[in-house]
């Protein structure tokens, strides 16, 4: 018998735990619709900024075999595009708006447009590793991050903070929970470099990029485990989930939902059906009646 995959992520009800991670096919309305139709429990938009951004010239992605390095440069059509971006989604689609900016005012403005357009939650991209002034340098400054968080939380929508791999993320978690965020997206990519040994050039036009995929999965899993262990908060576990096994491990570590990103490299989005099927079969085999009973399972072992 097919198991019920529906789950709760904080205040959100999802038809299944898979969430389209920010940055993947989320800047075009027909692609976002296709992602929803492919079966995601929620879709996250590409990070939108107050003004449109062209992003970097290619190469913007390196396929390393054990992961991917990308520096897209926060290319996006700008927050004013949001109504159009959402226009092809059905009413019941669960939408997480990812936003980025340089100042608390930038974030507030983008979040306000999100509230006007009735998004279900807002994800703060404080941790993009490849755009100066719009990413890691924010999340590494806990005080500044909290200023941004306060501005956006005050609008009354569920807020998720996307964490990067920093020395201070547990401090940021503790202090942003005090400010009323609902949960966390764990984790963003990790800054890295790839060099082409034929030409000698760094491959990415931006030189440095964000590492994602299988290589970072154990790190993401550890961060989810650590945050859930301490605070029992809603977490979107994102990082190297490239099959149903990693998705199950994320739930066991404490994630209520599982972000899917690098899995989509070279794959059609419809193939997430394989992950859903794998989770379902695992539930049957192990006797889990619902997703909720899998969340944090490893903490009781």
């Amino acid at each position: 018998m097919a198991r019920d995959l529906s789950t709760r992520l904080g205040s959100l009800s999802l038809r299944n735990p898979l969430v389209l991670a920010s940055g993947f096919i989320g800047s075009d309305e027909s692609l976002l619709r296709r992602a929803w139709e492919a079966g995601f429990g929620a879709v996250t938009t590409k990070s939108l900024t107050p003004k449109p951004r062209k992003g970097y010239d290619p190469p913007i992605v390196v396929d390393l075999g054990y992961g991917y390095l990308n520096a897209v440069g926060l290319a996006n059509p700008g927050i004013e595009y949001l109504p159009r971006l959402l226009s092809l989604l059905p009413q019941e689609a669960v939408v997480i708006l990812s936003i980025a900016g340089a100042t608390p005012q930038d974030f507030r403005h983008c979040a306000e447009v999100g509230v006007e357009n009735n998004v279900d939650a807002i994800e703060l991209n404080l941790s993009c590793p490849h755009v100066k002034g719009l990413g890691m340098d924010i999340v590494e400054d806990v005080g500044y991050s909290l200023d941004i968080i306060e501005e956006v939380v005050s609008l009354g929508r569920p807020v998720y903070v996307k964490l990067g791999l920093t020395d201070t993320y547990m401090e940021l978690v503790a202090r942003s929970l005090d400010r009323g965020v609902e949960g966390f997206t764990v984790m963003n990519t990790v800054k890295g470099l790839a060099i082409d040994i034929e030409s000698g050039w760094p491959i990415l036009t931006n030189v440095y990029g964000g590492l994602s995929g299988p290589a970072i999965h154990p790190i993401a899993l550890r961060m989810v485990h650590e945050i859930y262990g301490e605070y029992r908060v809603p977490i979107i576990g994102t990082g190297g989930v490239t099959g149903w096994r990693e998705a199950v491990a994320m739930l066991y570590a404490g994630a209520s939902a599982v972000g899917i990103g690098s899995y989509l490299f070279n794959r059609r989005v419809e193939s997430i059906g394989d992950i859903l099927k794998g989770i379902q079969q695992h539930m049957e085999r192990k006797g889990f009646k619902d997703i909720a009973s899998m969340v944090g399972y490893s903490h009781h072992r």
Partner: peptide, 24 residues
């Protein structure tokens, strides 16, 4: 305009169709 070439950046979408030139 194909930028990533592997179906994730969305730059090469055939507008309105949800189809990607690089992957589909």
């Amino acid at each position: 305009i194909v930028k990533c070439g592997v179906g994730v950046c969305g730059s090469c979408v055939v507008e309105g169709t949800g189809l990607l030139v690089c992957l589909d």
